[in-house]
Design a binder for these strands. Structure first.
Lengths: 165, 165
DNA sequence: TTTATTGCAAAGCGTTTGCAACGTG
DNA sequence: CACGTTGCAAACGCTTTGCAATAAA
């Protein structure tokens, strides 16, 4: 019954370039985080970081693992799981759970340039978009309830152009 | 490491009343759905429906199961899982996956009266809100990409009033 | 009487953990 | 050298499934 999740494909809705986080930038961010916590930068972590950024978009652990194994065949899945958590803590990656129960990671550029997702329920492609107006209204809603907002998730589901016919 | 999910508590942000879906309304909706599909209305399904609506807010299967067992101690968890899927198909319930990996169900009133969530990252309470302006902007964004919107999810995370001190 | 549904227990899936060997600082 | 990290396999928690018994229609 549960159809295997095929993809996901990412289509940039706004026609803008890919993630702004460069490898060297991420590497130094990681190094800083490791240093400050007494942790170590290992070959595996660096390899995972490289593959992760090369993919540059939403990735699940399974796909990421496959990518990393091209260079480091012996890597274990536990390492990837552990490392992605680390990346999240280091501010390099963001974890997103989509509706089908799929957990994906995506590069975290910084707090400027937040984007949300448009998801086609038929072909399961994921499109990105940004909308400053909505973000401001979200702030207002939060403020009205006395909330101090830290982050948010917004996903719009529907049929993309191709799947409407 | 993974802290057991405590709750969730629901706080109505707008001070409006609880879900508008009445038991009889839901029962007839269910009966119609069953009839049209050649399925059966059983004691268990009716019992689950009653407990589900009585709770009236976000429930996980575990909590719902506990509630139903007060009246029908012999009920199996598989039945609850299967029934909730059925309710979703019948338009009685909506499935929501929150970030912690928690899957919750909530009564589905109909398409009018959609609400979203404000979630405190400290106490994990979930507040509801509605904002028509945001909904309209979402429509605009979707339209700009040629999308036909069917539904959406929006979750705002932050610190609630109580947890800011 | 037919066919869907139930409860149970077993399997499934993605993720996490314990551990001994290993590698980094 | 000390101690964090790795890969492995086993454990985990939630969810789904196969099955024989049961109950709606």
């Amino acid at each position: 019954m549960r159809s295997r999740f095929q993809g996901p494909f990412l289509w940039l809705a706004e026609g803008r370039g890919m993630a702004g986080l460069t490898l060297t930038e991420a590497q130094s961010r990681l190094a800083a985080h490791m240093r400050s916590r007494g942790l170590k930068v290992t070959r595996q972590r660096d390899q995972i970081l490289e593959s992760f950024l090369k993919i540059g978009k939403h990735v699940g652990v399974e796909d990421l693992l496959r990518a990393v194994r091209k260079n480091t065949p012996s890597i274990g899945n536990a390492t990837v799981y552990r490392t992605m958590k680390l990346f999240v803590e280091a501010g390099i990656a963001e974890e997103r759970r989509f509706s089908a129960g799929v957990t994906l990671y995506e590069p975290h550029d910084g707090d400027e340039h937040h984007h949300d997702h448009l998801i086609c329920t038929v072909c399961e492609r994921i499109f990105e978009f940004e909308n400053e107006e909505i973000e401001q209204l979200q702030e207002q809603v939060a403020e009205a309830q006395g909330f101090k907002l830290t982050h948010h998730k917004m996903e719009l589901y529907g049929l993309c152009t191709d799947c409407q016919s």
